[in-house]
Structures are given as structure tokens and as C-alpha cells.
Nucleic acid binder design. Sequence first.
DNA 1: GAAATAGTGTCTATCAGACATTATGGC
DNA 2: GCCATAATGTCTGATAGACACTATTTC
Lengths: 248, 248
Amino acid sequence: MNISATEPDAVEVSHRDQASQSEKPFFSVDLVIFTIREECLQVLLVKRAEAPFKGRWALPGGFLEPGRDDSIEVCAMRRLIEKTGVQTPYLEQMKTYGSCNRDPRGWTATTVYFALIAQDSARLRGNQATVRWTPMQGDGVKSELAFDHAAILADAADRLRSKLEYTHIAVHLLPEEFTLPELQRTYEIIFQQPLDKSSFRRRVTQADMLEEISGKQREGPGRPAQIYRFRDYDRRTFFPRSISRHAR
Amino acid sequence: MNISATEPDAVEVSHRDQASQSEKPFFSVDLVIFTIREECLQVLLVKRAEAPFKGRWALPGGFLEPGRDDSIEVCAMRRLIEKTGVQTPYLEQMKTYGSCNRDPRGWTATTVYFALIAQDSARLRGNQATVRWTPMQGDGVKSELAFDHAAILADAADRLRSKLEYTHIAVHLLPEEFTLPELQRTYEIIFQQPLDKSSFRRRVTQADMLEEISGKQREGPGRPAQIYRFRDYDRRTFFPRSISRHAR
DNA sequence: GAAATAGTGTCTATCAGACATTATGGC
DNA sequence: GCCATAATGTCTGATAGACACTATTTC
């Protein structure tokens, strides 16, 4: 039994109970969708069709529709699948941005999700003029983005790099089957820095997250590489130490 | 010049531009405020004065008021100061929870902030019957909380512990001046595990975040301890390795 | 000097980085 | 055999944990 419920003298008056419909801020969900394409980290952008910022590139997203989505997460996932067609993306909530001046239409809050997908799994809806992959340059992209999306994108790039130091999430940027050199290359592309092969392999194998697949890959010249698959797609694993950015 | 702005054929129709006032979800800000009190991690709870969950204990917070707060962060800070009187709290955004069923009044999203304060800096507004510190037991508290606040609190406790492994935030649970044994004790209370004195001190001093204060503390028996002050209140520093929970 | 607590020194197993070496394919 | 790439082996410096030891106070 809940003892607090038996006390009769509750006097706390919460603002929670005083809000009227007109006081609600706008609430939207935006997505930062990363992939590796052409040896480069790229982010999915859409071109705004209407004011404000008509014609500018922006992160995909939009107002949450209470009648349609049961939760923020569901909303984010739906929009991600709509835009990319990806079935099993890596999706994680990043941060919520809200203020009176980030959108000229009024007080707006947006919860931003962070997604990683394999390039070959995506089938973009819409043409190149309205939806496209855009290469990252440092923490941003070349074109000027709508709203505060440049700052959001910078936060996302930062988050990606720091999570890469102690988690396995980079595997979600690769197709289901990949080689260790490919995985290492993915890290190097994001860190913009070469890593030591021996240390990298030790780290990955010790984490015990990959399983070998009998069969080899050859394509280019040189010795063929063993193909691996990410073992436990759900289990979150951490490296005991962080990857050093000072390598080689 | 922004090349994308010169393209005239934008056709992307964003849901962002279709929301009407009636479709907005409720939006609130809630706080998980931790302190160390009586050798125990405690969280600030308030008793709900009105339905839903009237009489139940809940995390402090309430609907965001667009006319009053310029941003989510400002709203969280204002409510924190209102409740505790603390001037320089550690405040960090944690996560946003939003769904159709977490509040019987309708679709609600809440952005939860995470605060650490020193016990002696707080002056609670309201009496013991409506606002009080509650000791944590594992990832929760004894009483049943309103809404999904038990799950939120568990997430916050988890976050606190994992951040403690690689950051200095525990200093914010202590008064401005403190000794190393006191700091170590704070870690031990939260981890619920003794730590090795030598390793702990090496770790803290190597991080170079504390400065000695000339003057000593004696109180109890035994050799007096050096008093320190947290050096750079803003700079975020990280330990090179995580604190092991296997210590001792 | 005994008790209690603060603070330091040292040993060792572990491990990341560096880099040399071997393995395996195509031509 | 040569080239290119994959994969493994080895050495070394750094460091966290363990624990013994010294230091400084009160009684």
C-alpha cells in the first residue's frame, strides 16, 4: 500500500494542471540519419518546400501527430522508414531542443533522433532535388541549413564520434556481412584518422561481438579477408578502454 | 551563397507545416534532483495535489509555459531554483519521454532534466508533507510514484552511475569545499561499493581538477584531511579509464 | 603510546600502441 | 616471383588494482 496516498493534506499545486491548449508549444521530431557512402560520412537532408526557410536543406522530420503516433519513438521510426525504406535501423534518442526563437512560427520543441543505416539498405523516396545524402565536412555540411539544424547536426556528429570510442555502433553503418578491414575503414572515416590494424583487431575480437562466416571475400588484389556478421544485434557492449585518437 | 536556395523546384511537403493547435501534445519539464543526505543518495519528490495521481509522490516539474520560459533549459533551471533555492546547480538534460498513455489526460511529452546539488545548499520550499527528500533504494524509492516516474527515476539513477565512471560530476553533490575522503565516500555511496583509497586518489589528482586550500579540517578523530575545491566548474573532464566496480 | 584517520610507496598483471613478420590471394 | 592486402606475433611503456607502509592528529 502506498502510504503517501493515505495522507489527506496534499497542497502541492502543480503547473502541470494549469496549462490550456493555447499555451502548448509546437512539438516535432527530427532525424539525423547517417550512413557511409563513397568513403565518406553522409547525412540525409530534405529540401524545405514551404516557409519558413523555403528552399533550404533541413533534417528530415516534422510535427508529431498525436492521432497517428503512440510515442515519440514510434514517430521517429515511422518517419525514418518512410524516408529510407530501411527495415532494421539503429535508432537512438539524442536530445531535445526547445525555445521561443528557434522557429519563427513560435515556441517549438523538437526531439532529435540519431540513426545509422547501411548505405545499400536505403531506398530514398523522392528525387535528388528534394531528398539527398550530403557529405559531412567536419561537424557540418557545406550548405546552410534551416532552423538550428546546423547546431543539431554538429551535436549529432559529436555524439557519433564519442559513442564510437566505447561502443560497437559502427557496425550499423555496414551491411550485415562485412570484413574487419571494412569495419576498421569505417572507424577511420569517422575519426578522420588511421588506426593501428593490430590494436583494432584485438579490440574487436576481444569484445566478442562478431562471428565468422565460412566463406571469403576477394574483390580487390591481395589476400581475401574473412567475412563477419554482428553477433548480437541488441546487446549493447562496451570496450574496456576507449579507442585512442592518437593512433599511428 | 547557398546553392540549394537557388533551386526552384522544391516539392518536399513537410508535416511540420500542417499541424494545427489542437494536434499539439502536452509538453512538460520534469526534474530528477539528487543529493547525498545521511550517507545515502536521495531524490527530491513532491506530492501531487490534484488528479491524476492525486496524493501520490512524483518528480517535480510541470507544463512548460511558452510565455514565461524562453527555452526548455531555462524552464528546468527556474523550476529547480524555485524548488530548492540552489544557486549553482549541476543541470543536464537527460531524456524526453512522450506517448499517448503515460498521462490519462492525453498525449504528453516531458523532457527530463537531471540535477545534482549539495545538501547544505538546499532550502526546500513547502513543508515535509508536500516536498521531501527520499532515499534511493537501488534504482528507485519505496513509495509508488505517479505517471511513469518510477521508470524515469530508474533511468536517471542508471545515468548517474554510468556518468560517475568517467566524469567528475560527483563533486556537485558536495559543498564547495571538501576533502578527498569525503569525495571518495560519495562515490562509494552511489556505487554501493568500497573503492581503493590509493587508486581513487591517484585518479582524482591526475585528472588535475581539484585545488588544495591552505587550511585543514579536523572534526573527527585521526589525522586532519586536506580540503580541496573543484577547480574549473565548467570544464568537463573525463577520466582516461573508467572506475572499476570491482575495487577492493 | 594507542587509536583513528589521512596520505604515500611499491609491486604486478594487464593492455594499448607500435611495428615486424607471416599468410594468402592475383598476375 | 612480385605485388597487394589480410592476419598474427612480439616488445614496451603506461597504469589500475592491491596492499603495505608512513604521517598526523586526539585522547
